[in-house]
Nucleic acid binder design. Structure first.
Length: 715
DNA sequence: AGCACGCCGACT
DNA sequence: GTCGGCGTGCTC
């Protein structure tokens, strides 16, 4: 029986720590269970990752006892332990931080600081010569206890009072857990047999190819496939694959990039497959998440449809993982700490659990297509049917103040005359209005994020990045010049212009700002499909929808906002958006692209909308400029409040990694715009192999850099 | 992360 | 003179 437990803590701490197992827990404790331990005088939740008899001698005397074992059953499965361990090592993220990602946040117990009166204070000893405020606080607390944060909110400037009272021994501040909940989720359903509805929508030609996938699932191989097919064909294939997998007694995880798609595909598959389907996305409340998490762990579902975080679900006996719309940027998580690439994790998991991995897309990322061609597993079901669709490329001068040019106006007018509908695509939401100084040309930007301020409610300015709001300044802070308003190019501005151009015609915005809930969403969709709304002005949000009327004109405004930015992926991104938008255009319809850069190669490629052609030209570009898939790029971002600190770290790291003898290209540290008031410094490292980047970054980081950086690889 | 220890500016 | 700012370092 083990005497010690090796624990991982949800902290940016790269080591595991040892704790003694009290005898009453020795029988019960297992790897993957949560425990409560004392760490430097505070209580935290740890995860057991190992049970051992002996620990290194030097730890013996500082080794404390585990205070409580929370779980009856492990919350982190063996394979998730393995997955997170390998992955945290790979991405240089503390193991505990990664395990934390896999659990519903409510399972990581948090302590709050609570204030109690000591016996001394209760007996009114030493309370005579206290200040008015101190007396008031003691009276307020009385026999109860309050959290420090609550008191801070209730009374102002309370910190000095608390520390004084505490020094006088009149109050005590203790760490206490919020209620420990031991929920187990719903009970699993009784074993039942589900009747699989058989459908015959798969053509024999396609069937041959997908039989390979079925075989891989059956043989428990971790092979990887890419299904290159339009939306409807992919969904058909998925439902076939899902049925086949489930009929072999295995489970399926289907990952989609957006909540909305999760709901849509859930509804769609529910109609087709008669099995227990679980749905999980970021729209669930914490309580719902926890329940669903336990339901999944308790084997309630055969198919789980979810967003990104689903990749960490404790699904046993998994046979198939599908990542749909694999090209979607949101799978590359660069917003919160730690950064990670969902597809990378899916690959690790597929390997560890011998699961077949399927990517699906109608416009695959260059990297995935390249890999599928090279390593096999490409299933191409794009029918090169000639569309009668017309692509018009129209020059629109940058100096032009009108958003809708004359030509486009004519086109729209023509459709309206025929009582046809129009979709206009703009890549910005809202009604942007910036402030520019007439005299010195200063564009007013947010001090936290460096994002230009927008005018808000006539007399205020707002940063749409961090929601920082300020009163509208009357003069330029630098030269005291007068501000001029610059109208932006968001959906709101387009709507206004459309309303001026075509009075009496009903037009509507379709972006995350205009579509705040499902009610407005369905209303807009219905109004459009019934023909009440003639012109729909939407952002990229449109690409996640299937259920719109086809239109005879799709207007694309300012596409250079997408392909024009200096990012090796921007061309690909634009082609993908256009592929997604194409589905809204009727066979005889027109795609009208209004741009200041009509000669750009990506615009020219749109003329015949051929993925293979696009792929070939893009691949050549990637090769020439040493971008993925030929070269991998490691991105390391140091962040923190104090720029001097971060700059130091970045400098030390930079000089260290430059000493490495390997074939690396290292780019000098660059200052990035602030996010949430934090400074960021970025260093890029290029090499042919991921491994070379990882190893060298690790070597250069060493122990002194345990936190305050994010690392991710573009592969 | 959060808590302790340690060294410099404004104050009862 | 002290209080308290946050920079640095450690946690079994």
């Amino acid at each position: 029986m083990a005497n010690f437990a090796e624990l991982v803590l949800p902290l940016p701490l790269s080591k595991t720590l040892y704790y003694k197992i009290p005898s009453q827990y020795k029988n019960r404790i297992k790897e993957g269970m949560r425990v409560i331990v004392d760490l430097k005088n505070r209580k935290i939740t740890g995860i057991v990752v190992g049970l051992i008899d002996k620990i290194p001698r030097e730890f013996l005397k500082e080794c404390k006892e585990i205070e409580e074992v929370i779980d009856e059953e492990p919350v982190v499965s063996k394979s998730i332990l393995e997955l997170t361990r390998r992955f945290s090592d790979y991405y240089i993220v503390p193991w505990g931080e990664f395990i934390k990602l896999t659990l519903p946040s409510s399972l990581i117990l948090k302590t709050t600081k609570k204030v109690f009166l000591t016996e001394k204070a209760k007996n009114k000893k030493n309370t005579q010569n206290l200040s008015k405020n101190e007396k008031a606080l003691l009276n307020f607390i009385g026999n109860k206890s309050y959290s420090v944060t609550f008191l801070k909110r209730k009374f102002k400037d309370i910190s000095p009072i608390l520390s004084k009272l505490s020094r006088k021994g009149l109050i005590e501040i203790k760490n206490e857990f919020r209620k420990i909940k031991k929920r187990k989720g719903a009970k699993p359903l009784e074993e039942g047999f589900y009747q699989l509805k058989l459908e015959t929508f798969i053509h024999s030609k396609e069937k041959d190819k997908i039989d390979e996938i079925i075989k891989s699932i059956k043989d428990e191989k971790s092979s990887q496939f890419l299904i290159f097919a339009p939306d409807n064909i992919r969904v058909n294939l998925y439902s076939y694959l899902i049925k086949e997998t489930i009929s072999k007694g295995k489970k399926v995880l289907l990952i989609l990039p957006e909540i909305l798609l999760v709901r849509t595909i859930y509804d769609e598959l529910k109609k087709r497959i008669n099995v227990k389907i679980g749905m999980f996305h970021s729209g669930l409340t914490p309580r719902e998440r926890e329940t669903e998490w336990f339901n999944i762990r308790n084997n309630m579902y055969d198919l789980i449809i979810g967003s990104r975080s689903s990749i960490f679900f404790p699904i046993e006996n998994l046979g198939l993982i599908i990542v749909d719309k694999e090209e979607d940027e949101s799978y590359f998580l660069k917003k919160d700490y730690p950064f990670y690439d969902l597809k990378q994790i899916a690959k690790f998991r597929a390997k560890i659990e011998s699961v077949t991995l399927v990517y699906g897309s109608e416009s695959p990322s260059i990297e995935s297509y390249y890999e599928a061609l090279k390593r096999g597993g490409l299933i191409s079901l794009i029918r090169e049917k000639r569309y009668g669709m017309k692509v018009v490329i129209n020059y629109h001068s940058k100096k032009e103040t009108k958003i809708i040019g004359e030509e486009l106006k004519k086109e729209i007018k023509e459709r309206l005359r025929k009582n046809e509908q129009v979709i206009l695509f703009v890549n910005r939401k809202g009604e942007e209005e910036f402030l520019i100084c007439k005299k010195c040309g200063l564009l007013l930007k947010c001090k936290n994020c460096n994002y230009p301020y927008n005018i808000y409610k006539r007399d205020k300015i707002v940063c749409y990045f961090c929601n920082y709001i300020l009163p509208l300044p009357s003069n330029c802070p630098i030269c005291k010049g007068v501000f001029k308003r610059i109208i932006g190019k968001g959906t709101g501005s387009v709507l206004k212009e459309i309303q001026n151009l075509f009075p009496g015609i009903k037009a509507c915005r379709f972006d995350s700002e205009a579509i705040k809930n499902r009610k407005t969403e369905t209303k807009v969709i219905n109004d459009f499909n019934k023909g009440k709304v003639k012109i729909l002005i939407g952002t990229q949000l449109l690409t996640y929808y299937y259920n719109f009327n086809k239109v005879s004109l799709l207007g694309v405004l300012y596409p250079e906002n997408i392909f024009g930015i200096s990012d090796y992926k921007s061309g690909e991104r634009f082609f993908q958006i256009m592929t997604n938008l194409k589905k809204f255009v009727s066979e005889k319809g027109t795609i009208f692209i209004q741009t200041s850069f009509p000669e750009n190669y990506i615009i020219q490629i749109l003329k015949d909308f051929n993925y293979i052609k696009f792929y070939k030209s893009e691949l050549k570009f990637r090769e020439l400029f040493e971008y993925p898939p030929f070269f991998k790029i490691g991105e390391l971002i140091f962040y923190g409040k104090n720029l001097r600190n971060i700059a130091n770290k970045a400098r030390v790291f930079y000089s260290k990694i430059r000493e490495s003898s390997e074939d690396l290209k290292i780019y000098e540290p660059v200052l990035l715009p602030k996010i949430h008031g934090e400074c960021r410094v970025r260093i890029l490292i290029k090499a042919k192999e991921e491994r070379i980047i990882v190893d060298n970054v690790k070597k250069a980081l060493q122990e002194n850099f345990q936190r305050n950086f994010n690392f991710i690889i573009y592969a």
